[in-house]
């Protein structure tokens, strides 16, 4: 009987090898991926008055709050970059990561009704979230560029440089880290719901451990070592350095972030792949 095995298109067993990720069927469902992205994008702002304008209002208000609280009241320095621009750069990048993480970490629970009725590669859902957030990010990034141009033409404080070309890489690492961490958490929440509570404020706390509202130069040498252990630190710093000419840039730091992303993604996909088969029985 085993000699006929090659003829079958699909063999389902209780457990497959943990590395057996079905990329072929993922490719078959690529249209679904795009339709999910479209759905997320359209459905969020249906029946709102301001619609997609919220994409801009959110970072603007946050930046304004940060400027008042951390800039004016706590008087945290911003390395000579105009405060608005400094916080907006942090908020733009951070929001993307936080949204990716928050939403992907809910994959199994919020989609359990669909997952319980029909099969498609489950990984489609978190990947579609990463992509639809990319659209939001693009809008917010445009806002950042406008503000940047304003300061660039009116002041002499900003020095964008060639490292801007690293932007796609930075986004890739952000997305990959958010996806990796998100699917690890979503895989674990099918059994341990506790993690859902953790993630809600965990993301907020994580922001303070990343140079979003303060520059690296604000820290002591010892603190810096701890800070660089956070793979997102290098991303934030490189981003600021590329667009404003101020900050720390180091290829090794960036490589470290990249490797961290690969490890998280690897663990995430393996866990996710294992859980997606039986989560219907436990969720």
């Amino acid at each position: 009987m085993s000699d006929k095995n090659e003829e079958w298109d699909l063999i389902v067993k209780p457990k497959n090898s943990i590395f057996n990720v079905d990329l072929q069927s993922f490719w078959h469902y690529r249209d679904l991926l795009l339709l999910f992205v479209k759905r997320d994008f359209i459905a969020v702002y249906k029946q709102t008055v301001l619609g997609p304008l919220w994409y801009i209002i959110q970072p603007l208000l946050t930046t304004f709050m940060f400027t008042v609280i951390f800039g004016q009241i706590a008087k945290i320095p911003t390395d000579g970059i105009p405060k608005i621009l400094f916080y907006l750069s942090g908020v733009t990048m951070w929001t993307y990561f936080a949204e990716c993480l928050n939403k992907t970490s809910n994959t199994f629970i919020s989609n359990s009704t669909i997952f319980g009725k029909v099969y498609f590669p489950r990984l489609i859902v978190p990947v579609s979230i990463i992509i639809s957030n990319l659209i939001t990010f693009a809008v917010q990034f445009l806002l950042f560029i406008l503000v940047l141009l304003y300061y660039f033409s009116t002041t002499d404080l900003i020095h964008p440089n060639i490292y801007i070309l690293l932007l796609p890489l930075l986004i890739l690492i952000m997305a990959g880290t958010g996806l990796g961490l998100g699917i690890i958490i979503s895989s674990l929440t099918t059994k341990y719901r506790d993690l859902r509570f953790l993630i809600a404020f965990g993301v907020q706390l994580f922001m303070f451990a990343t140079p979003v509202i303060y520059p690296m130069s604000f820290l002591s040498a010892k603190q810096k070592v701890f800070m660089m252990a956070n793979p997102l630190s290098a991303i934030m710093e490189t981003f600021r350095f590329a667009f404003t000419g101020v900050g720390v840039f180091n290829w090794m730091h960036l490589l470290y972030s990249f490797i961290c992303m690969l490890i998280l993604l690897f663990i995430g996909i393996i866990l996710f792949n294992k859980v997606e088969k039986t989560f219907m029985d436990t969720v």
Binding site: N5, V12, Y119
Partner: peptide, 21 residues
């Protein structure tokens, strides 16, 4: 329809399968 997996045993399929649960 591959919504869940068997605890033991296996099944093999030839061709595209779609389910309407």
């Amino acid at each position: 329809s591959r919504v869940t997996t068997p605890s033991s045993g296996q099944f093999k399929v030839k061709g595209r399968i779609a389910s309407l649960l």
